[in-house]
């Protein structure tokens, strides 16, 4: 039983590492606006919805946010709180849509809902703590860019889920650990 837990933690840690790697890859992509972020680091969370249990999904999220805070050095600043709040809102929303929507909602729909939740929470935080009430006028721009990035990441996730042999293998291995090692 211990080895199954260890394997599960190892998969969780690797998915967290994949988030950090994709975040590093995103730095190489030119941005149309200074504050614009594609959110490629959310891809492992999105595909992880399909097989990770809620605790491990939240652990991957925590590893992603903590790792980014440590690498960028923003752990002790408002950037970390924005990232944490946006990511938690996104994962909670995506989990709800994925479970309620079932086979009627694809990766694009799930991703879109997560991106919208993240954008709304981050705009609310920005209005409350950074820019003040008048910053409500940036809400349409922020939510609009959230829709665009949500669509793009959703399409990426769809392609990754349908084409990745690695993901199929990890999913199978993870499910095996949940079943206590039984095939």
């Amino acid at each position: 039983m211990r080895s199954e837990i260890r394997d599960r933690r190892e998969i969780t840690a690797f998915l967290g590492a994949l988030c950090l790697f994709l975040s590093a890859v995103e730095y190489l992509i030119p941005k149309p606006l200074p504050f614009f972020r594609l959110g490629l680091a959310n891809l492992p969370l999105l595909v992880g919805l399909r097989f990770l249990n809620p605790v491990d999904l939240l652990l991957v999220l925590l590893l992603k946010v903590l790792g980014q805070g440590l690498i960028n050095g923003t752990l002790a600043s408002y950037v970390f709180l924005f990232s944490l709040a946006g990511s938690v809102a996104s994962v909670l929303m995506m989990s709800a849509v994925y479970r309620v929507g079932g086979r009627f909602v694809g990766m694009v729909g799930v991703s879109l809902s997560g991106a919208l939740a993240s954008s709304i929470v981050q705009v609310a935080l920005a209005v409350t703590f950074v820019f003040g009430e008048t910053a409500r006028i940036i809400a349409p721009l922020s939510i609009g860019s959230g829709i665009v990035t949500g669509l793009i990441i959703g399409v990426f996730a769809d392609r990754f889920v349908s084409g990745s042999e690695w993901l199929k293998g990890i999913e199978k291995r993870y499910r095996k650990t949940l079943a206590g090692g039984r095939e």
Binding site: A13, F14, A17, F21, L59, L66, G67
Partner: peptide, 17 residues
Amino acid sequence: GLVGRTFYHFDSILEGN
């Protein structure tokens, strides 16, 4: 421990980027 393992894997992926 989990954060440590995450950075171990991160370095490993970066090596092959």
